[in-house]
Write a protein that binds this DNA or RNA. Structure first.
Length: 307
DNA sequence: ATTATTTGACCGCC
DNA sequence: GGCGGTCAAATAAT
């Protein structure tokens, strides 16, 4: 009986969480587009929906960490450092640890990547041998957990397939801390094979060089950060050996343009590895939204201005 | 001295 | 009882 009630409560929380998160995502997607014509107060409506879900969840004492908050079984006594000596009092009895709950997979996002880096600062807090897995699973939390109460967590496990050095990364929770200053702090690599660079000049200097890059590259785009992890090579269908490649090791900025199902664009500000040139380009993309709020995009065309 | 990582213990869930 | 997620003391790195 009691168990059944708990299960119902869990389901209710799950449903409310899903509703709230969906509203949240819708809000961020529409942030740039609401009330363009001033006709519908979409923004207000969304805020109200969001408030309803959040209010419902807080009535159930549900916290964002994915756990139902508990009243401690016995009053907790906090030990404050002794003002006179500056020393912490020795623990009288070894404190019983808090309750753990198995992580829900509903709010997780999975990413397969050649690198564990994603621009955020993570702190490792555990490692575990996983049954039938060759490599251990590593557990990371956001470094700013204590400063900003950021609850973002990720699990990283090296994939066994071949010697490809791929990582299976699962993210839980969203960052509430400030996002990384800019993408320039990270190592991003964009390789462009230009069709029209038959002469030895690897940098076409005419504006709006339309390179017509057709590619099957799939990219995962973090909808919240409105930035992209460009870790795959973008190659043209033209495999002409004489076509030289520009290798950009930094994407200084990546701004997402209008964001909706179908064609959209993303602007990149680029700097090459020698930092001697800087350019920008537009990647025209085809977006496909996923149920969890992430979206995939096909790059359908690149228009660049090089200097 | 401070901060990050390692690693065995602890804990909840199946 | 076993598994996987987390904690926290010990240790390493800065």
């Amino acid at each position: 009986m009691l168990l059944e009630m708990e299960e119902n409560k869990d389901r209710l929380i799950e449903t409310l969480t899903r509703g709230r998160d969906s509203a949240q995502r819708l809000q961020s997607f529409l942030r740039l587009r609401v009330n363009v014509d001033g006709s519908v107060p979409v923004k207000d409506l969304l805020a109200e929906i969001l408030e309803s879900f959040s209010g419902g969840l807080s009535m159930l004492n549900y916290t964002d960490s994915g756990e139902i908050s508990r009243v401690p079984a016995s009053p907790t006594v906090f030990q404050v450092p002794d003002v006179c000596t500056g020393k912490k009092p020795a623990p009288v009895v070894k404190e019983r640890r808090g309750c753990y709950k198995r992580r829900r997979t509903v709010d997780s996002r999975v990413k397969i990547s050649t690198t564990m880096e994603d621009g955020y600062a993570w702190r490792k807090y555990g490692q575990k041998e996983i049954l039938n897995s060759k490599f251990p699973r590593c557990y990371f939390r956001c470094t700013h957990k204590h400063f900003h109460g950021c609850k973002a967590v990720k699990q990283v496990q090296k994939l066994e397939e071949g010697e490809s050095n791929m990582f299976h990364i699962t993210y839980f929770g969203k960052h509430t801390c400030p996002s990384p200053d800019s993408l320039s702090q990270q190592h991003y690599e964009v390789a462009l094979n230009l069709e029209d660079s038959k002469n030895n000049n690897p940098l076409p200097n005419s504006p709006s060089t339309n390179t017509n890059i057709h590619t099957s590259v799939k990219q995962e785009v973090d909808s919240k950060a409105q930035s992209t992890d460009v870790s795959d090579n973008i190659s043209s269908g033209n495999d002409d050996q004489s076509s030289s490649a520009i290798r950009w090791n930094e994407v200084l900025r990546a701004d997402l343009g209008s964001c909706h199902e179908g064609a959209s664009f993303m602007r990149f500000d680029l700097e090459d590895s020698s930092a001697s040139t800087s350019s920008y380009g537009y990647l025209n993309m085809d977006f496909h939204f996923l149920n969890n709020g992430d979206f995939l995009s096909d790059i359908i065309q690149f228009d660049g201005v090089f200097s």
